[in-house]
Design a protein around this nucleic acid. Structure first.
Ligand code: SF4
Ligand code: SF4
Lengths: 153, 153
DNA sequence: CTATATTAGGATAAAAGAGTCCAATAAATC
DNA sequence: GATTTATTGGACTCTTTTATCCTAATATAG
């Protein structure tokens, strides 16, 4: 698997937040309901993203979670790095430790190209971009529902 | 992680076999020593590849494992499919079940491109190709040693 | 100040992945 | 045919990932 399940959930949650009015705090409970993710598990993931400064949280009534900066300023890569770490950028097809250009394996060159493609995609894609696309075409963010289900309260 | 550890070991082992004289059976013990992979674990992985018809085994003295067809006829993808299954080709960034063009998420298009890049790389690379490159440049297939350590008995 | 809503965080449990061990089977050689 | 070399395949353990549960801390509203 390319991304851990936590990371995937983190991306979904971030997209959801980015689809909301800027500055609004969304309770985790509501997010977990909408996104069909276990509340407690999602809580942990959001804690990580909060700790990394990508999200901001607020306790108490009317509290919840929101993006800490505008969605067009958050790359998918930010979220992947916060949750899965650098794994994706440093590990490799043959899994030899200390990989790099100095002491490569025969797959190194080809793999590096592929890895760069993944990296580039994640770096060049922002939350807002995907949200706009999702809204325009009513794409899905959950198993069944279209993008619009995120908005009925 | 993109590929499971089993898959990575399977690739290393297959490359090793492809570097050997065609038709020669190599005992698993020797392979596990050379490649620094647990004998018992490697055994299980090779069993999978044998079951899939990629490798061929022979019991008893002078027995071992060898490629079932010429190395230039084995794509990396064959090995990945045999061990990790279709995961890589069917799963996705947002992990929504039943992914596809019919009911996509906002990431689908970008992700499909990236996935195709990975797929293409694995499909367009053969064992022989990597072995030749490895031999020519004495690249590594283990943590420390160059490609040549595979040949001292 | 009290009741309520909500996140924070630790402890624990279940599931999957990675790795080990051993007895059974098959082939070769003497 | 007995002995040795190897693979086969099942059972088991260890570790990491995924998921659940419970208590504490914090903020709001009345
Ligand atoms: S492709 Fe590069 S990073 Fe991957 S195992 Fe080979 S040398 Fe290491
Ligand atoms: S990108 Fe495509 S395959 Fe991946 S979750 Fe979205 S719809 Fe599914």
């Amino acid at each position: 698997m390319l991304l851990s399940k936590s990371c995937v959930y983190g991306l979904r949650a971030s997209l959801y937040l980015a689809s909301k009015k800027e500055g609004e705090f969304i309770p985790i409970k509501k997010m977990s309901d909408k996104l069909e993710i276990s509340f407690h598990f999602l809580t942990k993931i959001l804690q990580q993203l909060t700790a990394e400064g990508i999200l901001e949280s607020f306790k108490g009534p009317n509290g919840g979670i929101r993006l800490n900066r505008p969605g067009h300023n958050v790359q998918l890569m930010d979220i992947v790095l916060a949750i899965d770490g650098e794994q994706l950028l440093t590990e490799c097809a043959l899994g030899l430790p200390g990989c790099g250009i100095k002491n490569p394996c025969p797959l190194h060159e080809k793999w590096a190209e592929t890895r760069d493609a993944i990296k580039g995609m994640l770096e060049n894609t922002t939350l807002t971009e995907l949200v706009e696309k999702g809204k325009a075409e009513n794409l899905r963010l959950t198993t069944d529902g279209g993008f619009d289900i995120l908005f009925d309260d």
